[in-house]
């Protein structure tokens, strides 16, 4: 039996046919849609490396079955930059060295984008640290991550003011 559904990934509608209901969103992205930017660190929702946005909310893609996502809107790391122009969060991660090996980075950045959209931290370092604590970084680039999120918050706020 096959399962047919469609979802939007980074703005593009994708018709999906899978033969196996056990496929997670993470494995759908990585193994079937060739979107390998999202990483598998633990496959059980403990590390956050697979964080993507589903209908605007932060989700561990390893914990959600793909067949449950008919009609959902998915945002992954591949859809964040504007061509060669990085998103302010990506820019801030580079400037503040918010990563070393880079494996948890796509998840950190998606989580940071989700956190900033949630809009509850401002530049408060304590709240940023709490809000980013679902994403492990074994290289322990935490200081850089926290600074990057605060800097991105500043940059995005400034951008909003310019637009207003």
């Amino acid at each position: 039996m096959t399962y047919s559904f469609s979802l939007t990934v980074n703005g593009a509608t994708r018709a999906v046919e899978i033969e196996d209901p056990r496929v997670t969103l993470l494995d759908l992205l990585r193994e079937r849609l060739a979107l390998t930017g999202t990483k598998k660190g633990c496959d059980r929702g403990q590390c956050g490396a697979c964080t993507v946005l589903v209908d605007g909310r932060r989700v561990n893609a390893c914990l959600i079955l793909a067949v449950t996502l008919d009609g959902a809107e998915i945002e992954t790391i591949e859809g964040v930059a504007d061509g060669n122009r990085p998103h302010p969060v990506q820019e801030a991660f580079i400037a503040h060295d918010g990563f070393q090996c880079g494996f948890c980075t796509p998840g950190q950045i998606m989580s940071a984008i989700g956190l900033l959209r949630e809009g509850e931290t401002g530049e408060d370092r304590e709240r940023i640290r709490e809000g980013m604590s679902g994403n492990l970084c074994r290289c322990a680039a935490y200081a850089g991550i926290t600074e990057a999120v605060a800097a991105a918050q500043r940059a995005l706020a400034a951008g909003d003011r310019r637009r207003a």
Binding site: R30, E31, G102, T105, P106
Partner: peptide, 27 residues
């Protein structure tokens, strides 16, 4: 200097081993 591989890493374009999918791949 900031990392020369920084852009690849923040965009998900840095290819780690498990990201490779040669044709005919088995798991």
């Amino acid at each position: 200097l900031t990392r020369r591989d920084g852009f690849l890493k923040v965009t998900g374009a840095a290819t780690f081993a498990a990201d490779n999918r040669p044709a005919g791949l088995l798991h």
